[in-house]
Design a binder for these strands. Structure first.
Length: 646
DNA sequence: CTAGGGTTAG
């Protein structure tokens, strides 16, 4: 006889494995994010297996409720609520918390009462569930705190934290990471640091969730130095945290820090992801550093990310901002299905670089593809109209916004149309347009007209417009300067001097004009009449040589923009010191023949510099790209892409 | 049953 053994018995007659229970399957599906499946299982159980449905209410309800919350199933959620009450499952912490979460996550229903909006109705039922809960724990509090924080009820969320504290329930890492984004949004670094202190004292500081909320909070408060410290102290840094750090730095202007992190990231063997690039590349655009941008583009290609629309759009934008619209266009043309952002970036690029009509050609092509323009697209289109001097089209696009697209024109759209009207000299029309606006025009809307008044030398209207601007914004620097220049250019030196004097009295100082150029990885900055650059003498010598050639070709200095009451002879020497001329000539004598010159300027280019640059581009046979405060100018063979209209 | 962190156009 064989000795009796369980193993032998099992081997002889193995039982088939038990089928997983309904409740188990529902829990697993819900926790894996397969909410439809979880709901389907729950409904099937209720219909086909009343006994199981009855015995596993407690264990299956949380998963089902979570799925309703995720899918926004209000009606089913309500019937589960009834079931929870009827079956007594509501007494259970887990089921009750899941119910609380459901009400927090459901979108606000349309409101029927005028006194109360939908979200207030929701909050009331949430609060009711919460108050009736027989047993509250930290999860219940956290659910409510998050619900308030996410629906913008910041004060209430913070009040709840105090309330839970008083109630003897200690905030934990969940609470912290729900509340920290409030201080991030409000850029309230003081209270953010208080929470950081609390986190440290209670051992939550190296929690990844808390850590990433802290990083985000400090970045939003433009304290990326603290972000980096928190980041460095975290024990575990997975890849996403790097990206979050990087984006935080890049978006808040700490580009050097972002690039440093990018290098460290590569060093630590963490592979860059598409988001890494779509947050870094725009930062290069904002620095207008073509060199850096090109290096990142090379990484993008090597990493095989060039098919990503986000990256392509950011590359288009970066190349446009760095002055290379043709590369941008090549990238755009290679996108299989450009989205609204890619189109808008490209339209804006053409609008800013010229010829601006190309922007409108693109817009029409986009519409043929049934892609719907949004308010930013219209901003780009209206910018194109103003730069191309297309008054009728400007009106047409402006009116079509509300007529065909249901987009309410914003202040920016109004400013763009006012500019479109004013630039070609339709000052009266622009004035009437601004006066008749449905929203109250701001100083910046009026100042587009003021600039137009200066260009068209209408001192009377300029004075009236300036008065409106100074009422709205008494210390508007730009407007003071434009008005003073308007006086000067019509020979009213006394009034100009008087205005300048009152500006000095108010302690207002003009922003000095400066231009800069990147040569051999180094930025060279030129301030007007600044002789400190080591090559200054050589630059002036070269400028004089160009001058002689220009005069032979018919150049006449334009002293309209010299706003001092001095002799013509002296005015010419004032013009010679303009920063953009210094930067351009430096670029020409310090780079090999044929190299494209890219110059940036903080203010708008003056008429004389514009003319001189056209001559120089022809004399040296080079393309010169200049970004001024308003747009890009491409000079080639004596012609500028702005069509002398800017 | 509760949490977070990422991206492009102005």
């Amino acid at each position: 006889m064989q000795p009796w053994s369980i193993a032998a018995a099992a081997a002889a007659a193995p039982f088939p494995p038990l089928p997983p229970s309904w409740a188990h399957q529902i829990r697993v599906a819900a926790s894996q994010g397969d909410f439809h499946h979880a709901i389907a299982l729950f409904l099937r159980m209720r219909a086909s297996d009343p006994a199981a449905a009855c015995s596993s209410v407690l264990t299956s309800l949380p998963g089902a409720l979570k799925s309703c919350a995720a899918l926004g199933l209000r009606a089913l959620g309500a019937s589960l609520h009834a079931l929870a009450l009827r079956s007594g499952a509501f007494a259970d912490r887990f089921a009750a918390n899941a119910l609380l979460n459901l009400y927090c996550k459901l979108p606000a229903p349309p409101s029927h009462s005028p006194e109360m909006d939908g979200s207030a109705v929701v909050l009331e039922s949430v609060r009711k569930v919460f108050d009736e809960m027989p047993e509250k724990d930290v999860v219940s509090w956290n659910t409510l705190v998050l619900g308030c924080a996410e629906s913008g009820r910041h004060g209430e969320a913070l009040g709840l934290v105090r309330e839970m504290w008083r109630d003897g329930c200690k905030p934990d890492s969940f609470t912290l990471s729900s509340v920290l984004p409030i201080f991030a949004e409000g850029a309230d670094v003081r209270r953010g640091m208080e929470l950081h202190g609390f986190a440290t004292r209670n051992g939550f500081h190296d929690d990844v969730f808390v850590g990433s909320s802290l990083i985000d909070m400090y970045a939003n408060c433009t304290r990326t130095d603290y972000s980096v410290k928190v980041f460095d102290n975290l024990p575990v840094r997975d890849a996403i945290l790097w990206n979050s750090m990087l984006a935080g730095c890049a978006q808040n202007g700490s580009v050097d820090e972002a690039l440093g992190l990018f290098r460290r990231m590569l060093h630590s063997g963490i592979k860059p992801m598409p988001v890494t690039f779509s947050s870094l590349i725009p930062a290069c655009g904002n620095l207008a550093s073509l060199l850096l941008g090109k290096q990142l583009h090379a990484y993008v290609i090597r990493g095989g990310f060039d098919g990503n629309v986000f990256i392509s759009s950011s590359l288009i934008d970066m190349y446009c901002k760095c002055g290379n619209v043709s590369i941008a266009r090549r990238i755009f043309d290679r996108i299989q299905s450009p989205d609204i952002v890619s189109w808008t970036a490209m339209i804006m690029g053409h609008a800013l670089h010229g010829p601006a009509r190309e922007a409108l050609v693109l817009f029409d092509r986009m519409e043929l593809g049934n892609l719907k323009p949004n308010h930013i697209t219209f901003l780009a289109v209206l910018t194109a109209c103003s730069h191309a001097g297309l008054v009728d089209k400007g009106w047409k696009y402006f009116n079509s916004m509300s007529d065909h697209y249901g987009i309410v024109p914003s202040l920016e759209h109004h400013a763009a149309l006012a500019d479109t009207l004013g630039r070609p000299g339709k000052l009266e029309e622009a004035y009437n347009f601004i006066s008749g606006m449905k929203i109250k025009p701001t100083a910046s809307v009026w100042s587009t007209l003021l600039r137009a008044c200066k260009v068209h030398k209408n001192t009377v209207l300029a004075e009236e417009v300036a008065k409106k601007i100074f009422d709205l914004e008494p210390r508007s620097m730009g407007s003071h300067i434009i008005l003073s220049n308007t006086y000067s250019s019509s020979g009213r030196w006394n009034e100009a001097a008087h205005l300048r004097k009152s500006m000095r009295k108010k302690g207002m100082q003009k922003e000095p004009a400066c231009s800069w150029i990147e040569v051999k990885n180094k930025q060279h900055v030129f301030v007007a009449h600044d002789k400190s650059h080591p090559w200054y003498e050589r630059i002036i010598d070269a400028l004089n040589v160009f001058s002689e050639q220009m005069v032979r070709q018919g150049y006449v200095p334009n002293t309209d923009d010299v706003f001092q009451d001095i002799e013509e002879e002296q005015k010419n020497s004032v013009l010679c010191g303009h920063s953009e001329k210094l930067a351009i000539v430096f670029g020409i004598i310090s780079t090999p023949p044929g190299t494209t010159i890219r110059v940036m300027k903080n203010l708008r280019v003056c008429v004389d510099c514009h003319t001189v640059t056209k001559f120089i581009s022809k004399i040296v046979g080079r393309e010169i790209v200049m970004r001024d405060a308003n747009r890009f100018h491409h000079f080639k063979d004596g012609i500028c892409s702005c069509g002398d209209f800017w």
